[in-house]
């Protein structure tokens, strides 16, 4: 695999994840939006932990904070923590079947949502919705197998070319 084509694939997937996050949804669907960026980050942490690590997680988090006008550092903190847990266990998580992986990813997204919930609860006046805030955990878990297969094929194609 040439490192430049791999770099492009990683950048493109993150870009698409960011776009999906910024895409406006109707009010009933908005709370169900999966944590796209966190999921893509978890995938690359599992696949290429030596290339996509904590620094990337932090940078992407900051970009997300600015894009969503969130308190600066909220998403950076959440994504860096998720990334740390993933990389620390990546050899174990990689061996799990996809279904079991989805549950692990669900737990990681739960951690992510818990951190953003705490930050917003403690630091901002706009209290997060105590029910809606946890919906992404469900959608992310359900979507993980598909995202995993999609990204794996993308990576293999980039590898073989």
């Amino acid at each position: 695999m040439t490192s430049s084509s791999r770099g492009w694939v990683i950048a493109a997937t993150f870009l698409i994840a960011l776009m999906l996050t910024a895409l406006p949804l109707p009010p009933w669907a908005a709370p169900w939006r999966p944590a796209w960026v966190a999921m893509v980050l978890i995938y690359w942490n599992l696949a290429l932990p030596e290339h996509v690590g904590l620094v990337v997680a932090f940078a992407i988090g900051l970009l997300l904070d600015v894009m969503l006008s969130a308190p600066m550092g909220q998403n950076a903190l959440a994504l860096t923590t998720v990334s740390f847990v993933t990389i620390a266990n990546h050899q174990r998580f990689r061996l799990y079947p996809v279904g079991q992986q989805a549950i692990i990813v669900g737990l990681l997204i739960l951690l992510h949502q818990l951190l953003t919930f705490l930050v917003r609860q403690l630091l901002t006046l706009q209290k997060p919705d105590p029910v809606n805030h946890w919906f992404p955990v469900i959608t992310s878990t359900l979507l993980w197998p598909w995202l995993f297969i999609l990204l794996r094929d993308l990576r293999r194609r980039a590898q073989s070319s």
Binding site: P31, L68, S69, A70
Partner: peptide
């Protein structure tokens, strides 16, 4: 801009 911000944060871009 037709983009999302933090949920229910009463902000626009």
């Amino acid at each position: 801009l037709g983009v999302e911000t933090e949920p229910s944060s009463n902000q626009v871009v």
